[in-house]
Simulated scan of single mutants.
Amino acid sequence: MMELPQTLTPIQAAKYLGISEAVLRLWRSEGEGPRYFKAGEKLIRYRRFDLDSWVEARLSAPAAVEGR
């Protein structure tokens, strides 16, 4: 299995997150979603660390155990 690079294209980042590239593009245009950087005028890249951090920040709290 090939290891992903540390920086991902929008297509790779969308696949990594399990969403469409269109959703990722929409989030960028609205100033939402994971952090990214421009490596050129039209060259967008995402760091895997930022994608993982973004997901971690959105994890829900564990559900309370019933009967306690």
Results as ranks from 00 to 15, higher is better:
residue 28 R to M: 05
residue 33 G to T: 03
residue 40 G to K: 02
residue 31 G to T: 00
residue 40 G to M: 03
residue 13 A to R: 06
residue 14 A to G: 04
residue 41 E to M: 07
residue 17 L to W: 15
residue 11 I to E: 12
residue 23 V to F: 05
residue 4 L to Q: 13
residue 30 E to I: 04
residue 34 P to A: 15
residue 4 L to A: 12
residue 10 P to V: 03
residue 37 F to L: 14
residue 5 P to S: 09
residue 28 R to C: 05
residue 21 E to W: 01
residue 36 Y to W: 11
residue 7 T to R: 08
residue 18 G to Q: 13
residue 36 Y to T: 07
residue 12 Q to C: 02
residue 30 E to V: 04
residue 42 K to N: 03
residue 29 S to Q: 11
residue 31 G to S: 00
residue 9 T to E: 07
residue 33 G to I: 08
residue 32 E to Q: 10
residue 39 A to T: 13
residue 46 Y to E: 00
residue 10 P to E: 05
residue 41 E to V: 08
residue 6 Q to R: 09
residue 21 E to I: 08
residue 18 G to M: 15
residue 35 R to H: 15
residue 31 G to H: 00
residue 27 W to G: 08
residue 35 R to Y: 14
residue 38 K to Y: 09
residue 19 I to H: 12
residue 6 Q to F: 15
residue 6 Q to N: 15
residue 7 T to F: 09
residue 45 R to S: 04
residue 4 L to K: 11
residue 27 W to V: 03
residue 42 K to T: 08
residue 44 I to G: 04
residue 39 A to R: 11
residue 11 I to A: 07
residue 22 A to M: 13
residue 6 Q to C: 13
residue 40 G to D: 04
residue 41 E to S: 04
residue 24 L to A: 01
residue 41 E to T: 07
residue 16 Y to L: 01
residue 13 A to K: 02
residue 6 Q to K: 12
residue 37 F to W: 09
residue 7 T to D: 06
residue 6 Q to H: 15
residue 9 T to V: 10
residue 10 P to R: 05
residue 36 Y to K: 03
residue 5 P to R: 07
residue 28 R to S: 04
residue 5 P to G: 09
residue 25 R to Q: 06
residue 14 A to S: 14
residue 5 P to F: 07
residue 8 L to H: 05
residue 23 V to Y: 11
residue 16 Y to T: 02
residue 42 K to Q: 06
residue 14 A to T: 05
residue 32 E to I: 02
residue 46 Y to M: 01
residue 19 I to F: 09
residue 25 R to G: 06
residue 8 L to G: 07
residue 25 R to W: 03
residue 26 L to P: 00
residue 31 G to M: 01
residue 42 K to D: 07
residue 10 P to G: 02
residue 31 G to L: 06
residue 20 S to F: 10
residue 11 I to P: 06
residue 45 R to E: 05
residue 37 F to E: 10
residue 31 G to E: 03
residue 28 R to K: 09
residue 40 G to Y: 05
residue 34 P to D: 15
residue 43 L to H: 10
residue 4 L to N: 12
residue 33 G to D: 05
residue 19 I to E: 14
residue 9 T to W: 06
residue 45 R to C: 05
residue 40 G to W: 01
residue 35 R to L: 15
residue 45 R to W: 02
residue 16 Y to E: 02
residue 13 A to G: 02
residue 33 G to W: 01
residue 32 E to N: 14
residue 32 E to C: 10
residue 42 K to Y: 11
residue 5 P to Q: 07
